[in-house]
């Protein structure tokens, strides 16, 4: 039976343990962001055809980013009303849309470098703050939100100038569904499909 003294001792130990775990996750998250960022920039600045680069970046997105988690988050209050087929169609389109968006920005980061400023807990995840330096451009601050929910570090959001990518897109999607009656996720799925076709057409 634990004595009162051992209880008193164990409380600070547990607290210290939790703090150490958070500190551990914070440093793991910042290592993860450094590796991922380096890998992305290596592809962007490397030689190789555009198609090669796209394929390599897609592989990084698929492992380093919790694409399905972000997709669910962005559907928000409409996730429960979507049918299983709609969820599947939505998540598949969402993945293509996200990958296309990321790889479409390739050229913007040519010659960029980044520095990691700090890494701190934020609402159960870890926020890793970075500064991106691009020649001829003002420096940009970007936060990478890293989650450990799946057991390994994965990116769940990007926050630039105080604006969160997943919250912004959630409002975008909610607006599309609401303006089409607010009952059916199909409107969003159709809009996403159209948008993908248009974006792929734009990029030739």
């Amino acid at each position: 039976m634990p004595t009162r003294r051992s209880l008193f001792l164990s409380v600070p130990l547990i607290l210290a343990g939790t703090a150490a775990l958070a500190a551990d996750e914070a440093s793991m998250a910042s290592d993860f962001v450094r590796q991922t960022g380096d890998a992305i920039l290596k592809i962007v600045n490397g030689s190789g055809s555009m198609a090669d680069k796209r394929a390599q970046l897609t592989a990084i997105v698929n492992t380093a980013v919790d694409v399905d988690g972000i997709g669910r988050f962005e559907l928000g209050r409409f996730w429960p009303i979507a049918t299983p087929e709609q969820r599947q169609a939505y998540l598949s389109l969402f993945r293509q849309y996200l990958v296309f968006n990321v790889t479409g920005r390739l050229g913007q980061y040519k010659g960029s470098s980044f520095t990691i400023e700090r890494s701190e807990p934020l609402n159960g995840d870890i926020a890793v703050s970075t500064t991106i330096h691009t020649p001829g451009q003002p420096t940009a601050d970007m936060q990478w939100i890293v989650s450990f929910d799946s057991g390994k570090p994965q990116i769940v959001d990007l926050v630039a100038e105080g604006t969160s990518m997943r919250i912004t897109q959630r409002s975008d999607y909610a607006s599309v569904i609401t303006r089409n009656g607010g009952e059916d996720v199909q409107a969003l799925i159709d809009a996403l499909r159209q948008q993908l076709i248009r974006m792929q057409g734009d990029s030739g």
Binding site: G162, S164, T168, S171, D172, Q195, D202
Partner: peptide, 28 residues
């Protein structure tokens, strides 16, 4: 241009971006 190119509803996207941006500035 990026928002107009990628957003499904640019109006709602700009609205969300503006609100979040101001909230972050005010919080700071």
């Amino acid at each position: 241009n990026e928002v107009k190119r990628t957003a499904l509803d640019p109006y709602a996207t700009f609205r969300s971006l503006y609100r979040q941006h101001r909230e972050a500035q005010i919080a700071a």
